[in-house]
């Protein structure tokens, strides 16, 4: 509801912007469960929509191509949904994922990619490789935090794609520690995280309760990636129109 409320705020944000009838909030299909993200504003992307009617999205991190969804022969599902939902919006997606790359290396490359491509929003799939490589949690947290602050300073929105859910990893201490670290970062830096782990976990639990066995590769198929594209489309659409948080009250 908050998202819909935010949507209605568009006219206040930009009277010259797209007419209300030209957009609709992308839905997340029933099979994908609840949208696993908060209604976090994307102010730089909103400005791009207002000024250029164009949105440049840079995807970085492991499996960044697959999280965009869709088939090889068509444009990424994320792009399709966004352009369908917001009439007249031109979405450009640049994929710069390097598989196996740790957050520190991706962060260095990200600065270069921002300088070269001038994206409005970054989709950063981060954490899995660091968890597998045993990167110390503090080191990981500092790297990602510094990068998020750098992006904010350079007027680029960021959406973090959280770790995969895998029941076998529920007891992997380091994997869970990195996951917790991402949650802390989201809270402290006020960025949007797509809680893929939580949403898939809920879906898996529902399956079990309904008496269906949970496949061992649950969440790692085409359908799961299409869900991710739907989550992202919704997150971006909501972020474009969400009301910015009120400024902090003046100090007494």
């Amino acid at each position: 509801m908050a998202a819909l409320g935010g949507l209605l705020q568009l006219a206040m944000i930009s009277p010259a912007a797209v007419a209300q009838s030209d957009r609709q909030l992308p839905t997340v299909s029933k099979e994908c469960g609840e949208f696993p993200g908060a209604d976090t504003p994307l102010p730089n992307s909103a400005a791009a929509l207002r000024d250029r009617k164009q949105l440049k999205i840079l995807a970085i991190g492991a499996s960044s191509a697959s999280m965009l969804g869709g088939t090889r022969d068509s444009m990424p599902l994320l792009e399709q949904i966004l352009e369908r939902s917001i009439k007249g919006l031109d979405v450009e997606i640049i994929n710069r994922g390097v598989s196996g790359e740790l957050a520190a290396a991706a962060a260095e490359r990200l600065k270069i990619e921002v300088a070269l491509n001038h994206p409005d929003v970054i989709l950063w799939q981060v954490g899995t490789n660091d968890a597998f490589a045993g990167v110390p949690v503090e080191e990981f947290e500092t790297t990602v935090k510094d990068m998020l602050q750098w992006l904010k300073k350079h007027h680029v929105d960021a959406i973090l794609i959280g770790l995969h859910y895998m029941k076998q990893l529920a007891t992997h201490d380091h994997y869970q520690a990195i996951r917790a670290s991402l949650r802390r970062l989201v809270a402290s830096e006020g960025v949007l995280r797509i809680g893929r782990y939580e949403s898939t976990e809920i879906l898996a639990r529902t399956m079990r309760e309904d008496g269906h066995p949970e496949p061992s590769n649950f969440g790692l198929n085409e359908a799961a990636y299409d869900c991710m594209a739907q989550y992202l489309a919704r997150a971006i659409a909501v972020g474009l129109f969400a009301k910015p948080p009120p400024p902090p009250p003046p100090m007494p």
């Binding site: 492991a62 499996s63 697959s66 196996g100 490789n129 597998f132 995969h164 895998m166 990893l169 590769n217």
Partner: peptide
């Protein structure tokens, strides 16, 4: 290690999925 996520490591996902 009963971890299908390893099939996605290092750009291997496309090999196994497509």
């Amino acid at each position: 290690f009963d971890n299908p996520l390893l099939l996605e490591w290092h750009n291997a996902a496309a090999i196994f999925q497509e």
